[in-house]
Simulated assay, not measured.
Amino acid sequence: MDAQWRTTLEARGARLEGDRIRDFGDPGTELAAVEAGDPVVTDLTGRGLLTATGTEVLSFLQGQLTNDVHPAEHGSPVLAAHLSPKGRVLAGMLVFAFEDGYALEFPNDLFDTLAKRLRMFVLRADVRLDDAREEWVRLGFSGNGAERAAAAAVGADQPAADRVTRADRGTLAPLPGPGPAFLALVAAQQAPAALDAARELARPVGQPAWELARIRAGVPDLGATVSESFIPQEANLEPLGGISYTKGCYTGQEVVARTKHLGRLKRRLYRIASPGPLKAGQAVHAAGQDQTQGRIVQAAPRSDGGWEALAVLRIEAAEGEAPLRGEGAETDLELLDLPYSVTETAG
Rank of each mutant, 00 (worst) to 15 (best):
D2S: 10
A3R: 11
W5K: 05
R12I: 02
R12D: 03
G13H: 07
L16I: 12
R20L: 10
I21N: 05
I21L: 10
R22Y: 11
D23F: 02
D23L: 09
D26Q: 10
E30V: 00
A33S: 12
V34I: 06
A36W: 13
P39I: 06
T45P: 00
T45V: 11
G46R: 03
L49T: 09
A52C: 14
A52N: 07
V57C: 15
S59R: 11
F60P: 02
L61T: 07
Q62R: 14
L65A: 13
N67D: 06
D68T: 03
V69W: 00
H70V: 07
E73I: 02
G75M: 13
G75T: 07
L79T: 02
G87F: 05
R88H: 05
V89E: 02
V95M: 10
A97C: 07
A103N: 07
L104I: 15
F106T: 04
N108F: 14
N108A: 14
N108P: 05
A115L: 08
A115K: 09
K116A: 13
L118M: 15
D131A: 00
W136R: 13
R138L: 06
G140R: 14
F141D: 10
N144P: 08
N144A: 14
A149N: 11
A151R: 08
D157C: 01
Q158V: 08
A160G: 15
A161K: 05
R163C: 07
R163T: 02
R163H: 11
T165V: 08
D168M: 10
R169I: 11
P176K: 05
A193N: 13
A193K: 05
A194I: 08
A197K: 02
E200W: 08
P204A: 04
G206N: 12
E211D: 13
I215W: 05
I215G: 03
V219F: 01
E228S: 08
I231G: 03
I231R: 09
E238L: 11
G241A: 12
S244F: 12
G252K: 00
V256C: 10
V256E: 08
A257R: 04
L265Q: 06
K266W: 10
R268L: 08
L269D: 00
I272G: 01
A273L: 14
P277A: 15
G281T: 07
G281D: 12
A283R: 04
D290H: 13
D290V: 06
Q293G: 03
G294T: 03
V297Y: 10
A299E: 09
A299L: 14
P301G: 00
G306L: 04
G306E: 06
A309D: 07
I315M: 07
A317T: 09
A318Y: 10
A318C: 08
E319Y: 03
L324W: 14
E330D: 12
L335G: 01
L336C: 04
L338F: 12
